[in-house]
Design a protein around this nucleic acid. Structure first.
Lengths: 228, 228
DNA sequence: TGCAGAATTGAGCCGCGTCTAAAAATAACC
DNA sequence: GGTTATTTTTAGACGCGGCTCAATTCTGCA
């Protein structure tokens, strides 16, 4: 209660925060252009919004270097992620929307979800921890489990692991993954990496399939190495 | 395809249109102040928006006299009403939200409902015709059944009828109605009208109860007179 | 190390949707 | 039937969230 505390966030602000959150989740440093591209907005618009969010103590913005969420910002962003992912799960489980469509729908709905409905959905779904694409659902206080994720693309030959997450924004990618039965939970083993960079060959039980680079960069594997 | 045809409507415009639609449903003529009050917005804002909507051929605006939906406007407004009411029904039936809360939730969500989800909800609910408060759900082409509704408040003593609709915007009213088992479908008979204007006494089977004026003006009865 | 090209930011503009204050039209009342 | 009260509209301003274009800073490469 220093000065202004519980500002109402606009949908646009929520979009920015959740976008930054998503990048930070993957351990990336977040630049203006990443946000700009991901949101389909001019870079200058991002800068302007970063200034506004910084003045509200939601992000920290080092000009020309990048941006990161503050504690407050992370709280708010986690809430948005929770909304988004609960909705995605609800739509697939209860409404029967195919998994390559739920992202867009959830994106529209997430800003309109009240605290109350959020709780009802969580209830109905049994307090889920993971959404249909394997993204972790933060709990109400914003905390999330920690996972040791690595891009499928960057795994060494012979590595075993479990599909943990598939980027949800591109329906075509999700269909591509589904065709190869690469769902969260599927066990895989990297059989071979094409030396010329085209694709990785992956074994799923007896079957094996090739996964193209673009896809393999958007599929995240949980391995059980103790490295970090 | 005269000039500009399928303008994307902003949420604000959708709100205005649905508000006008709601008044027209009840046969009222629609004034600036009614919209202003109902939307919680300054009268001047309404006028300005009416001009914009008029220029898009969604409403007809006769300065100082009132406003009405054009064919286009009615189409768009009916779609919003359909969204709103499908969501209300879905929330009560599937999500288990109590009927005095669904209006507010639906109001937030209706702007974010895609065509696709609209269809899915309608499907799940079995193409319903009526929402939890008795409001008619327009079908996809915008058509609605016609009903012969009269305010409970204006019924003559001795009139029999069926509760058809209860205004949904005031949770307290809905709880008030629920306490008296005045749900859509309940059969009633007007036993007595308090001559000093306080309330109507209504019989529900063996029971009877008093309904205050403010409530009785927001409860609509379907009677079977042929007086059209 | 210096410089070209890429990324970021600044300045200024625009449309939307709101507001307030003042003017205009309509309605009500004696 | 004229004056007053009410409703509606006009005028002008503002903040948000975009944009473009130009200036600035950073980076990578010769």
């Amino acid at each position: 209660m220093t000065n202004e505390d519980k500002k109402e966030l606009s949908p646009a602000m929520e979009d920015y925060l959740r976008t930054i959150y998503k990048f930070e989740e993957k351990g990336a440093m977040v630049t203006t252009s990443m946000i700009s591209e991901s949101l389909g907005v001019a870079p200058a618009s991002v800068t302007k919004m970063m200034k506004r969010l910084a003045s509200m103590d939601l992000v920290e913005h080092e000009p020309y270097r990048g941006v990161g969420l503050t504690a407050n910002g992370e709280k708010a962003a986690a809430e948005m992620a929770r909304h988004h992912r609960l909705i995605e799960l609800f739509l697939t489980e209860v409404v029967g929307v195919p998994w390559d469509r739920v992202h867009d729908e959830a994106h529209r709905l997430e800003h309109a979800l009240s605290e109350y409905l959020e709780d009802r959905l969580a209830d109905i779904l049994g307090d889920p921890k993971v959404d249909p694409h394997g993204q972790l659902i933060p709990c109400k206080d914003g905390r999330v489990a920690v996972r040791n994720l690595r891009m499928l693309w960057e795994l060494e030959q012979g590595t075993r692991g479990v599909v943990a997450e598939i980027e949800d924004h591109d329906p075509a990618l999700l269909r591509y993954a589904a065709e190869r039965t690469l769902f969260p939970g599927t066990e895989i083993c990297v059989v071979e990496r094409d030396p010329y960079g085209g694709s990785v060959i992956v074994a799923l039980g007896a079957e094996r399939c090739a996964v193209g680079q673009d896809a393999a960069r958007q599929i995240w594997i949980e391995t059980n190495d103790t490295t970090s």
